[in-house]
Structure formats: C-alpha cells, structure tokens
C-alpha cells in the first residue's frame, strides 16, 4: 500500500504508478476535485492511456462519504440518530464537513471533543479525528453494506475484485 498525501502530489505521481502497473496490478484511489464535474471525465483526463493493470478509482467527493455510507454503524459510532446520517453520501458537496457537523450533535463528549475542531485550531477536524476514524474503520465499518449506499464505493470494490481475479 502506497500512501501519498494530497491530490496534487498524487497527480504528479500517476504516470509513475502507471509505469509500475505494467508489472503489478495497481488500484489508485483519489478524491474527486471539489469543482470537477464527474469522475469519468477526471479519470480520462488524468490517465488517458492507462496500463493494463492500472485501476484509477475516484472516491466521489471524499472518503468520508464511504464511511457514512454504512448508516447504521456510523450513526451508532457517532452516537446520533441513524436517520440524521445522509442517505446518499456520494451526493454531498463536502462529506468531511458533514461528518464534523454530525459529530457536533453527538451524545458522547469524546466524539464531540475529538471530531469537532476547536475554534482556535484553524483546522477542519478535531484533535482525535485520525484515531477515531481508524477505530471506526477497523472495528465497525462494513464495506459491503456501505457499498449499497455508495455507487463509487461499489464500483471501486468491483474494480479491485477484477484486478484480483486476473
């Protein structure tokens, strides 16, 4: 697993990853730009001639959308009513902001204080964000359930399956 920070850095490296995809299957996951119209157009612009084993997947809008797509578990983890979790997270403009705003309504103090940024912090997320999100993904999140509410996740999973099978 190769992690690089930030969309700009990733885009510069795409041709490098594509080069490696001549030898091994690569699945690259990237957030959609806030102002790009659609995922397919972005894919063809970034990699017009992808290698055989390359799969460039766009997580529509952001990965937080995929997390909320398991409404039951995210609602329980955040200690909020499940009905408050958006039903089509792929349609959200800013899933990260939505998630943080949901956390403001949490019944649990550690969720509120951990996910919501302090006023003077100058950040978009709270101090315990990384730890709480990792805990959620490892212990609560169900990708197959989430895939039924998120088309972009479903397509990414199918893409991975096809890479694995070939």
């Amino acid at each position: 697993m190769y992690v690089t920070g930030g969309k700009q850095r990733l885009d510069k490296r795409l041709s490098g990853y594509d080069n490696a995809a001549k030898f091994w299957p690569w699945c690259v996951v990237r957030d959609l730009d806030g102002n790009a119209p659609c995922a397919a157009e972005l894919v063809s612009r970034l990699l017009p001639h992808p290698a055989e084993h390359m799969r460039l997947r766009i997580a529509v809008r952001s990965c937080e959308a995929w997390m909320m797509a398991d409404r039951e578990r995210s609602g329980r983890f955040l200690s909020i009513a499940r009905s408050v979790v958006p039903s089509s997270p792929d349609d959200l403009d800013d899933a990260k902001e939505t998630l943080v705003n949901l956390a403001r309504r949490s019944r649990r103090r550690d969720v509120r204080e951990g996910l919501v940024p302090g006023e003077r912090s100058g950040r978009r997320v709270g101090p315990d964000y990384t730890s709480l999100m990792i805990e959620y993904i490892h212990k609560r999140w169900r990708p197959d359930v989430a895939a039924s509410s998120s088309d972009s996740l479903r397509r990414c999973m199918e893409s991975l399956k096809s890479l694995a099978e070939n």
Partner: peptide
C-alpha cells in the same frame, strides 16, 4: 480521551509527526 487526559509536550524536527490533520495551530 476522557477524564484521564494529561498534557503532553513534545519537541520535534519531524515533518511526519506534524502530518496529523487534527493538530491545532494553537
């Protein structure tokens, strides 16, 4: 987390340590 929280003061030269998006400017 919670009542057992304690203040942790860290000196560093590491960019990697500062990558966490929850670290406040304050």
């Amino acid at each position: 987390r919670g009542a057992r929280g304690r203040q942790i003061l860290v000196s560093t030269h590491s960019e990697d340590l500062l990558q966490d998006k929850g670290i406040g400017l304050d």
